[in-house]
Design a protein around this nucleic acid. Structure first.
Length: 816
DNA sequence: CAGCCTCGAGTTCC
DNA sequence: CTCGAGGCTG
């Protein structure tokens, strides 16, 4: 069984750090010996990594060694040498936790906020499994604990690894800390050879209150709520501190297993309890959706008396074989959902509305609030989405049902959507100040002053400044260095922003020349005077002085007036980065090494990093898989340009026709308008071919194709791409997906009825195995799976001589 | 052509 | 985490 998408290596296998005795049980002599050994190993690894550029051990192993050394040094402070590899400057505390890959991804859950969502969930599952509305379908219901998820790996019954969820794929190794939690057994008897138990670490209300009292008494920091207290406690560098914190653990799921825990969710949970884990006593089996809803109501009633925080009820399909059939979407299982309790709300005053400018130029209004506690957290900002949201109208200008226009000075009801994002639920009109005026949304970018335009049918107003706009430039850079993009260690959002403001980096390519400029003693991209520009208004000058005062103070430079900004920038320009306050030899060396490492980058990451509108991680990966080489992508886009232009002209013609028709009060003749535009400027065949190659890629439609074409044919933007690519050493094509699967890279068509699985399932399986599923048979089709009742598609396949198999042969082929 | 599903973009707080 | 919208399916 197992819905395990076991493409990732099991965590912690190659590094037997766990075989070594607990730090707590080490003698001083043994510790000293191990410190010497770890120090040697880390030095050697550093040398291999930085000097020879050929890492001898993996990052995870390196982190594991380092983590062990930190633990020993924490227990025996006298063993911490002044030149210990753990003393690297600038490494934030979280770096001390090794990163570990989960053998089986830790997913999040889809949320349901009302009865209807739950009924939709049930209906969707029935549809997917081909079950009628009356068919018996059992679920489980259990309280959703408000803590943090943890994965515990047991090998031969011994706890070898505890990892936080992280991004679901990679978490942090917190084994030493987890060992101090009473509910987490260090050893299990009669456990499977490999067992990954997943559950929630939490703190009870009573323990939380006592902890905060203790913290207050010793002048330590107190926590806002039990969840933060639990998170803060688990992520202590010193396991000794974690041991003092009253953490608890409920088990409710599992990752990699060497043998099944049972046939159903209920059985598996019972087995976890039998193995010695705490499982939530309110977990129960529910027959059908009505039973789920009454379980929800009952658990909500008992919420206040449980003694720990819960934020909803989790429903799961009980039968594990059905869970396996249902499988996963990109980040959530199809067989589970979290039915949330209504969010807590609080009233406060909206002080003012500010506008932020995003990477794509979107102007987003944010409400600055009088700080207020909502659900245990102090909230001082809330999103206002867009212009219409504030005005209380929808995109068509019609008033939103119950919508009110939101004004500065209003009293507003705040809640945290999904317990995270603060939003405004209501406005108290009776308390509105008499002088409150409707908010006027700016029609120019507040950062660069360019016009901010709202395209027809679009809900957001966008700054048209493009790369001219500093806000957009910074946001693009932040996107570039973000985790799913270039992910340069030591160069986070904060740093790129600083470097941008100091004029050391203006575009991605500049990151790769920074070290050379630093060495040459001239990091700035243009002379300080030129960078600061000529005359300005008095207010602008004051703003600049304030901005640079704040920016430069942490670097040890005091700014009193405008005249001092230039010289300060010039002084920084000459000073090697390693000598600037806040930086050190080691952190600078690490930063430059991290930048060097990224001269080799996956094509998908590169495409995503460019920050082209509509092109996210998935589309970028899809493009990379198709083109495999950067020049091929660029060539296709160059070739497709006339077709893209034609597409845009056709769109504009359609739009114009729509407007004309509306004015004249007749029905628009869109096809005609399109046709006319097309006839005026015919598209060369190569361009048409390139355009269809593009739009034939899974997930790439005309909007994405146009956006890509725009980016590549806009000269300044294209030049920036080319400069960046010129600075890279190697662009790595994506790994062929599941190359070992018999259908990898093939194009498959399903036709007729399928009896043993639904069409959705069959498609999902085929995609997971690296195949492309389409629904029309063509010369490009590799395989047709025909069930009973197959008609024209099967005939066409036969005509074209395409391999056609039945459902049983298909099942045999994919091995299930 | 109309729903449905997924992806992309923007946002908050610690 | 949510909303809007792009793309695919029927």
């Amino acid at each position: 069984m197992g819905h395990a998408i076991a493409v990732l290596p099991p965590c912690g296998r190659s590094q037997p750090v766990s075989d070594r005795p607990d730090v707590a049980s080490l003698t001083h002599a043994a510790a000293a010996e191990e410190v010497a050994r770890l120090t040697r190993a880390l030095r050697e690894a550093n040398r291999a990594y930085y000097v020879e550029d050929s890492p001898e051990i993996t990052d995870a192993d390196y982190d594991a060694l380092k983590r062990r050394l930190v633990a020993i040094e924490t227990r025996f402070p006298d063993l911490r040498a002044p030149d210990s590899p753990t003393r690297e400057v600038g490494a934030p505390p979280s770096e001390a936790f090794a990163k570990v890959r989960h053998a089986v991804r830790m997913l999040s859950l889809e949320n349901a906020f009302g009865e209807q969502d739950v009924r939709d969930f049930d209906a969707r599952i029935r549809r997917y499994l081909n079950l009628g509305p009356e068919a018996h379908l059992a679920y489980t219901a259990e309280p959703k604990i408000d803590g943090l998820s943890l994965s515990l790996r047991y090998e031969k019954g011994v706890l070898v690894l505890a990892a936080t969820r992280g991004d679901g794929e990679t978490g942090e190794n917190v084994t030493e800390n987890a060992r101090t939690i009473r509910d987490i057994p260090a050893r299990l008897t009669e456990a499977p050879a490999v067992l990954e138990v997943r559950g929630e670490v939490y703190m009870s209300h009573a323990d939380f209150a006592a902890l905060n009292e203790r913290q207050a008494a010793i002048g330590g920091k107190t926590f806002a709520n039990p969840r933060n207290a639990a998170a803060g406690s688990l992520r202590q560098l010193d396991p000794g501190v974690t041991a003092q914190r009253p953490l608890r653990f409920f088990a409710y799921a599992w990752g990699e297993l060497s043998e099944p825990l049972g046939r159903t969710q209920m059985q598996a949970v019972a087995r976890l309890a039998a193995l010695g884990f705490q499982v939530n006593p309110l977990t129960r089996e529910c027959d059908g959706v009505e039973a789920l809803l009454s379980a929800w109501a009952e658990i909500e009633q008992r919420r206040a008396t449980l003694g720990y925080d819960i934020d909803g009820v989790v429903y799961k399909v009980n039968d594990l074989a059905l869970q396996a059939r249902l499988g996963f979407r990109s980040t959530t299982p199809r067989w589970a959902i979290a039915h949330k309790f209504p969010a807590e709300t609080a009233w406060t005053r909206l002080e003012r509305i500010e506008i932020q400018v995003g990477r794509t130029g979107a102007l987003s209004p944010v409400a600055r609030l009088m700080p207020v506690t909502v659900g245990g957290v102090v909230v001082s900002n809330a999103t206002l989405h867009n212009e219409d949201y504030i005005a209380g109208r929808d995109a068509q200008g019609k008033p939103i049902r119950g919508g009110k226009d939101i004004r500065e000075g209003d009293w507003v009801k705040v809640y945290r959507a999904g317990d995270v994002i603060p939003k405004i639920a209501d406005v108290d009109l009776s308390r509105r100040p008499a002088d409150a005026a409707p908010y006027r949304f700016p029609e120019a970018c507040p950062v660069c002053g360019s016009p901010a335009i709202r395209e027809e049918g679009d809900s957001v107003r966008r700054c048209t400044g493009g790369l001219i706009c500093p806000a957009q430039a910074v946001e693009k850079l932040r996107h570039f260095v973000s985790r799913p993009a270039f992910d340069i260690e030591g160069l986070g959002a904060k740093q790129v922003e600083l470097f941008y403001r100091l004029n050391w980096i203006a575009e991605p390519a500049d990151i790769f020349t920074l070290e050379a400029r630093d060495r040459a003693g001239a990091k700035m991209l243009s002379a300080p005077e030129a960078f600061l520009g000529a005359e300005r208004s008095v207010e602008r000058l004051e703003a600049l002085v304030a901005e640079y005062r704040e920016l430069l103070a942490p670097l040890g430079l005091e700014i009193a007036g405008f005249d001092q900004i230039g010289p300060a920038l010039a002084a920084l320009d000459r000073t090697p980065l390693a000598e600037i306050r806040g930086w050190g030899e080691t952190s600078v060396r690490n930063l430059f090494a991290a930048i060097e490492r990224r001269r080799e980058i996956g094509l998908g990451r590169l495409i995503f990093a460019l920050g082209i509108r509509h092109v996210g991680e998935v589309a970028a990966q899809e493009l990379a898989r198709h083109f495999r080489q950067w020049p091929d992508l660029a060539a296709c886009l160059d070739a497709a340009r006339p077709a893209a232009q034609a597409h845009r002209r056709a769109q504009q013609a359609e739009e114009a026709e729509r407007r004309r028709a509306r004015d004249e009060g007749r029905r628009p003749r869109l096809a005609e308008a399109r046709e006319r535009a097309r006839a005026e400027a015919p598209v060369p065949p190569q361009a048409a071919a390139a355009w269809s190659e593009l739009t034939a890629i899974d997930g790439i439609g005309p909007v994405l194709a146009l956006s890509l074409s725009d980016a590549f044919s806009n000269p300044p933007e294209r030049a920036a791409f080319d400069r960046l690519v010129g600075r890279l050493q190697r662009i790595v094509p994506p790994e062929a997906v599941a190359a070992e699967s018999p259908i990898a890279g093939k194009t498959i068509v399903f036709t007729g009825a399928l009896e043993k699985m639904t069409r959705d399932e069959a498609k999902a399986r085929a995609k997971a195995l690296g195949a492309k599923v389409t629904d029309s048979v063509s010369a490009k089709t590799d395989l047709v799976v025909a069930g009973p009742g197959a008609g024209s598609k099967a005939r066409k396949a036969a005509e074209l001589g395409i391999e056609t198999i039945d459902e049983d042969a298909w099942l045999a082929l994919i091995g299930s």
